[in-house]
Structure formats: C-alpha cells, structure tokens
Write a protein that binds this DNA or RNA. Structure first.
Lengths: 159, 159
DNA sequence: AGACCAAACTACAACCTTGTTATTTAGGTT
DNA sequence: AACCTAAATAACAAGGTTGTAGTTTGGTCT
C-alpha cells in the first residue's frame, strides 16, 4: 500500500484555500502535487501529507499578511527537513533568510541576534498548532462523502 | 522653535523608499505628513520625526515580505504609544491583532501563547535597530546639501 | 461505445502597488 | 512682475494574485 494521497479539491477543503489558489500555486511552481501531476483536464493531481503541511504553512503566512512571493521563499527551508519532527519546530524567516528552529531557546537567540542590534523583522511560524489543525481536518475528511483519489463511485453514498 | 520637519524628498532619502511610494502612501491614507499637508503642486509636505519612525517600520515590514495592506494594520498600534520609549519595544502582530511589547519576556509569552497551542504566525519588529538606523540617516542628512523645509536658496552651496 | 461527472485547463477582469513620464504650481529670488 | 526650481499632481503601464465563468478531457460506469 503506497502513501495516502489527496486530490485537488480535498486539499482545498483540508487546508482552507480556494481551488483557484491551489491551481495557480501548482502552475507557478510554488507547490505542486508530489505524488502525481495532472495529465490534462479531467485527470487528478495527487498531493502527499507533506505537501499538505507545506500548503498549510503557506496559507498561514498569507493570513498573517505575508505576500505570496515571500511565502515562496520562506517554505523553501521546509523541503530539506521534512523527515524530522516538525511539530516541535518553528519556521523563522526574515527578508533575507529562513531556517527551522527546534527549540524555544533557539528562537529567542535569533530574536536577540546574538546580542547584536539588528534592523530586521522576524516572521515566526510555530508549526505545532498548524499541524494539529491539519491532522484534525484530515480526520474529519475520512467521514465525509467526498471522493478520495480514483475511488470507485459505487462505494460512495449518495449526496 | 517648532518641531523639526522633513520634506518629502528628504524623507525618501532617510527612510530608503521611492518618492512614488511616499506619495501613494500619503494619498491612500497609510501615512501622511503630520506637520503640514501639501497645498497643491509645488508645495511641500512636512513630516515629523515620529512620522519617520512609522515609515521606517513600514519599510521594514515590506522588506520582510509583509504586504502593504497588512503593514497598514500593523502600524496602527504605534499611533497611541509614541510617547513611550520605542527603542526598547517590539511590535508584535499576527493576522488579527498587533501590540507593542516592552520586554523580551512579553514577546516570549506571546510566542508561547500562554502555554496554549495556537495556530498563528507572529511577525516581530524589534524597533531598536530601526530607530538607530533612522537617527544615523538623519544625522547624515544634516551634512548634505539638500534643502530643508522652505530653506532660503542662497544658503545652499551649489551642487 | 456512449454517457456522465469531476477535475484540470483557459481566458479574462479586477484589484493593489510601484515605476515612468509629463504637467502643474507653490514658493523663493531678482 | 518675471523667472526658476523643486515638489506635488496626474496618467498610464506593468506585474502579481485571485475570482469568475466557460471549456476540455480523463476516468468510471453501464
């Protein structure tokens, strides 16, 4: 049994974004479906759980007022680290760099700039709450009547 | 002697923004000249020091990737507090609220959400470094040959 | 094979922000 | 009063992002 995949409209529901946004982000290279790309109209994109984490972070950044262009840069550092325990991490980014901090002390160090005086703005994304929400949304989906990837129709209750 | 004022082009030089930006921000109500509004083409806007602090913060937010619309909301909380010592404060804002924190502990508390698990992004602006830069830029201006507000021409060296 | 449906694709509008260029005009000097 | 300069004003284009509506087509079922 391979990794569980999520199709486009499911992803929108889980993460809380519009289909237009998801499509635009996939087309402009921000984040696409890592399990399966689309083969044309009528086919399906298939996203992984880790794609969903990343999308959730992007959405969070947008909600906090960060522009999509900056969110693009910020999530880059999530891509090499998704094997570690993200729920205990915080993404910290400024205009010029972004890193994952794995302790509250690390975050405080960054804020204080090692006792220097930096003219810098910090955007901090504690991942715990977002991952919790994401998992809750995924569980909720299991009870919904919407289709999973390439699921036979006859097994779906009528809506 | 009234408060020192700064004219439009000086402000752009001090804060590090384009004239177009300053003009747009004044016209769209983000921040305008608190000492004197423009009386038409050929006249001068006159900005105060506190206007400059605010502009510097807005610029910093833009540089960190925050959208102008969000920066508008974020700086609102500076407006009631400019009589206190800003250099020891940090502006902290999320998508939904913004406050000034006057100690590092206060900032850490906000990040930890009082031990709750919040799904929230924090944008943190430690003001010290920005105010330092601003003051440095203003001092540098005093040696420049550019005109101050309504300054007689004959006192200006030829450029 | 044909019918159907869901998902991707396409095209355009709207909005926000900034850059560029040209025009207007307040304020200072002679 | 005439002239000059700097600063504000006006107009338009461009880029990025999202919403809306219509079209195409892969995949499933009969």
């Amino acid at each position: 049994m391979t990794q569980k995949g999520f199709r486009g409209p499911q992803v929108c529901s889980i993460v809380g974004i519009s289909y237009r946004q998801l499509d635009y982000w996939a087309r402009t290279g921000l984040i696409g479906p890592s399990l399966e790309v689309a083969k044309g109209s009528g086919s399906q994109r298939v996203y992984s759980y880790t794609d969903l984490v990343e999308l959730k972070v992007i959405k969070a950044l947008l909600d906090s007022g960060v522009s999509l262009q900056s969110a693009r840069k910020a999530v880059e550092c999530l891509r090499g680290d998704l094997k570690q325990d993200l729920a205990s991490a915080s993404l910290v980014f400024t205009g010029s760099k972004s890193i994952l901090a794995f302790s509250g002390e690390e975050v405080v160090d960054l804020l204080q700039g090692g006792q220097g005086v930096l003219a810098e703005v910090f955007n901090i994304v504690p991942l715990k709450g977002f991952i919790k929400e994401l998992q809750s949304s995924i569980e909720k989906l299991d009870f919904d009547s919407t289709r999973s990837v390439h699921e036979p129709r006859s097994l779906i209750p009528k809506t």
